[in-house]
Design a protein around this nucleic acid. Structure first.
Lengths: 382, 382
DNA sequence: TATTAGCACTCGAAGCGGTCGAGTGCTAAC
DNA sequence: GTTAGCACTCGACCGCTTCGAGTGCTAATA
């Protein structure tokens, strides 16, 4: 693709994004001061169409970008504007409002993004399976009920109400809790299995029947801390975009998005893929394979890499989203802990602006959550 | 309104609800075997229109019910079908799936309702401000952070992460926690103010600066247990109803519903009004004023009363909902604790069926939550 | 007096034809 | 290689007609 084609494609995408109308050769020549006549542009457009970058809704209409066209735009033509300092401080303030829980911050970030972009934002809580257990307490509430409180090395706190045998008294429960703590503290969440937990039973001088229920509940509580939560915001605002004039389409999309775990799963897949891609690029461009393989895997992701990922239209492997675009980024807290935050909107979106926003929110979120954990979990931060 | 008019109005509402098309005199006479000709019906329809029960979209169209028409239908003509035993056991099972927290049950009930009705369901957690504080624990997680765990007389457990002065050691924190517990346990949530909590400071032999932050955070935690949470489900399914063919309308509605606290507030208002109404009805019909005034107020609501409340169209004082209907019920746990669960859908809704469903879910929910609390909070249940 | 058959009338929905204009592709000239 | 020019396409829009389900009114009927 030569330079002129690139210039024309960029102009078409820009115009189409703005107006939501197919772009004709004439209007293109008046709106942008390109140095050629409409006829030339028609020529180029015909070729771009043949190459698959453009499509026409019908013979005598203007052109609009195809998925491939958007892809080329995002990969090569788009410019990423700097975030305005107003926006920057707005985001920071939005996330600073003395929120104590990581979850609250993440939810807040999603809210901000949705408000700012008018699209649907999705944020996932981090994956903690790499973290280890630092404390586990079981507190009796009354005979038959207790609460398990878990503290992870990252400083995250989770809890869960459980039922326990009502014959257990406080001292006995305490004994169990201590034994559990002795055995599990320091272990990685990933490495804790039901077998690991059950094996604690031997250490306790109480009838198995009493102990097992508690251990099982503790196990469930631990496993629940690994569960990734999904926050979405902005669903209600999507309808104002012209692509949703068509209720049928809106309906399909809402149904797709209602399956939160599907969306979350897809986001995590995207992340995997991106990491592989980056790894491959390194192979190829820098010939640094060996050093990387020797080094910690996590270190193989230099900070400078473009950290967002865009999926356009048919590229999205989620049914009901075939005519949307999905942008995700990975926020990082220290080296090991990471989660996802992204935006779903119509393909006809202001990619540059949105990506700048997401990237910045992403960074601010990483900082804000990191600040929370600053005083603890030091070993995770480097 | 004579009997024939009533019969005709009912037929019109039934037909309109089913077809979503204005109902004409002829089609009415063929679909229902009423004993009169279309001319007679036209006559009656004209009168019903004059009386305000029907309206026409334009001169030569059939009629559709006005808000007043629906109101009359709901008040006098609708029949409430028994819930099928399949549905009944489905609901019970849905709520039985060993869910330990009241919140989870309530969320689940909302899910069920949305799925069953294809409308939007809204459920509020109960108002606990009438309950009293039974336990309050503050547990150190690490220097500078702690978790407050509260147990209410109803057996509900809430917790909150807090920041504390990092010089506080575990023993000192424990001292504060004990003092707080001593002072506050048994008090009604409503009666606990910042002053009450702050007054605890005197009892503790520690510098005020250290103590005050903890006390304040504890106070916030207590106040948070009074916060009513809102669960909604079914938003994504609403679009399939013909009334939302019009995207503009859908958009307005989604924006209205996004203000969850508005909706929640309105539901609680509805509850208040219903209770007043019932009280008044008692005054009037049964002449039992004095007995009621002597008796406990809570006892003045006999179980047999129709416990649902319907708001139709303009009756709903929430902007953006002018052409919806809102059905709510109050679920009760014992005598004092109650919350709301309801459904929002288009005015053209199968009132009878939906109300039966809600009422049943409501009952099942009350039972399920009640069962959870069965072993504790005995004094609240009678 | 209440009911009904009959009839003229209304009005939106749907179908049709014509015009308009923004767009195209092609060709011939620059 | 670029561009002016021109014939062509096709959806959007407008006005017109037809169709039919619905109405209100009136006069006849039980």
């Amino acid at each position: 693709m030569d330079d002129r084609k690139r210039q024309i494609l960029k102009a078409i995408v820009d115009d189409y994004v703005e107006t939501a109308e197919p772009v004709g050769s004439k209007s293109l020549v008046t709106r942008h001061k390109l140095g050629f006549s409409s006829a030339t542009i028609r020529h180029e457009m015909a070729e771009l169409e043949e190459m698959g970058y453009l499509e026409k809704p019908h013979t005598s209409a203007g052109r609009m970008p195809s998925d491939k066209g958007y892809r080329a735009y995002v990969d090569n033509m788009m410019s990423l504007p700097e975030i305005s300092s107003d926006d920057a401080s707005a985001i920071r303030q939005y996330l600073a409002n003395n929120l104590d829980e990581a979850r609250a911050l993440i939810e807040r970030a999603a809210e901000y993004l949705a408000g700012k972009t008018d699209y649907l934002s999705v944020a996932l809580t981090p994956k903690y399976s790499d973290s280890s257990l630092e404390q586990i307490k079981i507190m009796m509430i009354e005979p038959g009920r207790a609460i398990v409180v878990l503290v992870l090395s990252a400083g995250v706190v989770h809890d869960r109400l459980i039922r326990i045998p009502s014959m257990l008294d406080e001292a006995q429960l305490d004994g169990i809790a201590r034994a559990v703590e002795r055995c599990l503290v320091g272990k990685k969440l990933d490495d804790i299995t039901l077998v690991t937990v059950s094996s604690v039973a031997d250490e306790i001088g109480l009838p198995e029947a009493l102990v097992n229920q508690v251990l099982f509940e503790a196990y469930v509580a631990i496993k629940q801390t690994e569960k990734i939560e999904v926050y979405m915001d902005g669903k209600h605002r999507l309808l104002k975009h012209p692509e949703f004039r068509d209720v049928e389409r809106a309906n399909r999309f809402y149904n797709a998005v209602h399956e939160e775990h599907m969306v979350a799963g897809y986001m995590m897949d995207m992340k995997e893929e991106m990491e592989e891609e980056i790894a491959q690029n390194c192979d190829f461009d820098l010939d640094c394979v060996e050093e990387l393989q020797k080094a910690d895997r996590a270190l193989s992701l230099p900070e400078a890499q473009p950290s967002y990922m865009v999926r356009i239209g048919q590229e999205i492997a989620l049914s009901g989203m075939e005519d949307m675009s999905f942008i995700t980024t990975t926020y990082r807290i220290g080296k090991k802990i990471s989660g996802q935050i992204g935006v779903i909107g119509p393909k006809r979106m202001q990619y540059g602006t949105i990506i700048s926003q997401i990237s910045f929110v992403n960074k601010a979120l990483g900082e804000a959550v990191g600040r929370q954990y600053a005083r603890n979990g030091e070993e995770e931060r480097k």
